[in-house]
Computed example of a mutant assay.
Amino acid sequence: MDERIFVTGLGMISPAGAGVAPFWADLCAARRRFEELTPLYAGMKPGVLGGRVPEAARTAALERISETTRARPRAASVFAEYAALEAIADAGLTPGDPALRNAVVCVGTNDGQADVLEDLVAGRKDVAGTGGFSSYSIADGVARAVGANGPVFTLHNTCASSNVALSCALEMLRAGVADTAVVGGCDAYSEKNIIGFSSLHAIGPVGCQPFSRGRRFVTPSEGAGILVLRTGRAAAGGRRPYAELLTVAVNNDARHLTAPDPEGVVDCHRRALEQCGLKADDIDAVFAHGTGSRANDSTEGAIFAETYPRAAITAIKGTVGHLMGGAGAAGAVAACLALEERLVPPTAVDPGDVELDIDLVTGAPRAVPELRYVQNNAFGFGGYNAIAIFGAASQGAGDG
């Protein structure tokens, strides 16, 4: 059985707009599109920044999915289905393609269809008009949009959800359940999420500044990223893959509700490397979780400084914000593009303000002609840790 798994298609929608191209352009330019969020309760401070998918991108997404959905779906579904359709087109496939009929569909999310509950609580809709709360409807909608009749999953693993979805899909492809998977993650703007972060004093009027001395706030965002995974046999004859998905390591340290546990995070790094037979020195670049919070960046940065001294580190949340359950998918899409372009985009911080002794890419994209292995970190509340490692696709991987 062919156990090599390749990424053959990418799809993205984010505050940069609809599509992979504007997402990558914003990352390479370290261009932020944060905006002030409307206060949601009397005690919420004004001026809090967040990332929202532009209205023009929402319209473009709705237009693209209109032929595959029976009713106007909610934002999370719009984002996921749009990204999935872009990803399969990028892979040279069309909805209902024979290659997709038995495909695995796996979507990670943090808040799911949270706006259903919010509409009910706020009295904007009654139960009959909500369209249902089940987050399974997100993955089911993706499966319907791409014409897949294989296993369908929605996973909730807080902000590690997308990488856990990648792990699930990788295991199923290697087990021979299918030879193609449509996998990623999404989250839409959630009032309960914003209120929760506000109560923790984790959001504010300054945008996310990962690994900087002055970092303080997370910048909540929204969007979706989807990847098409195919076995080497299925990928043969198609476009040259972006990358090979080597492994995804997942653990849960269950130490604290919100604070990261350094031992658990270190263990996840160790597992990821061991699972694909690599050493830390083999990793050329890391897309850090990099939320811009004091605790996360200190924990993650200390690991980079001690164990990954030669890796180029970047944190895209400084540019597009924290896509919550979709954060790992955004990092995975960016990691694959980095391998394709041999380019590591910068972190949107002042290079003179970097706190730790790490090789944080700032200012301009860094060309890495011999880029081979790229790591993508995703961690979440409740002790969830998930790390994916991608390798450069060999010249013959998609050529048969």
Rank of each mutant, 00 (worst) to 15 (best):
M1A: 14
E63V: 12
T307N: 03
A330D: 12
R366Q: 08
E171M: 13
V20H: 09
G9L: 05
G17Q: 05
V105K: 11
I65D: 04
V164M: 09
E35W: 01
A114K: 10
I303L: 08
A89K: 09
V48D: 11
E118I: 05
A91M: 04
G108H: 01
L246F: 08
A56T: 15
V78P: 08
V218D: 13
I316N: 07
G214C: 13
T258F: 06
L229H: 07
M12R: 04
D267A: 15
G321N: 14
A348Q: 05
A335V: 02
R372T: 14
N193L: 11
G383V: 01
G185Y: 00
V344L: 06
T69L: 04
G214E: 14
G318Y: 10
A56H: 11
A18K: 06
V78N: 07
A334Y: 08
T59D: 12
A30K: 07
F153P: 08
L93R: 07
I283W: 08
V177D: 12
A397V: 13
S137V: 13
A143Q: 06
M44F: 04
P210K: 14
N385H: 04
D297M: 09
K125M: 14
T109W: 01
N102F: 05
S137W: 08
G301F: 07
I303W: 06
L360T: 00
V286W: 04
V368T: 00
Q209F: 11
D253V: 05
H289C: 14
R213M: 09
P241D: 06
T319R: 04
M1E: 13
R294W: 15
A386W: 00
V142A: 09
T291Y: 06
R64D: 06
A234L: 09
A76P: 03
P151S: 11
G232S: 07
G290Y: 03
V20P: 05
N385F: 03
R255I: 06
Q209I: 11
P346V: 02
S212V: 09
A259H: 10
E81K: 07
Y373K: 05
S66V: 07
D140F: 13
K317N: 04
A57P: 14
G132P: 11
G47R: 05
V320P: 02
L227K: 00
G112S: 01
L323R: 03
I303F: 11
H322W: 15
T94F: 14
G185F: 01
A315R: 07
R33P: 09
D126P: 13
A76F: 00
L356E: 13
R230G: 10
E300K: 06
A364E: 10
A21W: 02
G96E: 10
N376H: 00
V105I: 12
R230K: 12
L120M: 09
I283H: 11
A99W: 06
P54Q: 00
D357W: 02
R310M: 09
I13V: 11
D119F: 09
A139C: 11
E263A: 15
G382I: 00
A311M: 11
S394W: 07
G277C: 08
N102P: 14
E263L: 14
R270G: 14
A259E: 15
V250Y: 10
E86K: 00
V104N: 04
P39V: 12
E341S: 05
Q375P: 01
R230S: 09
V104K: 04
G331T: 05
S298W: 08
G214D: 15
C336W: 04
A89D: 15
L229G: 10
G290S: 13
A285T: 03
D140E: 15
D350I: 01
G321V: 12
G96H: 03
R271N: 10
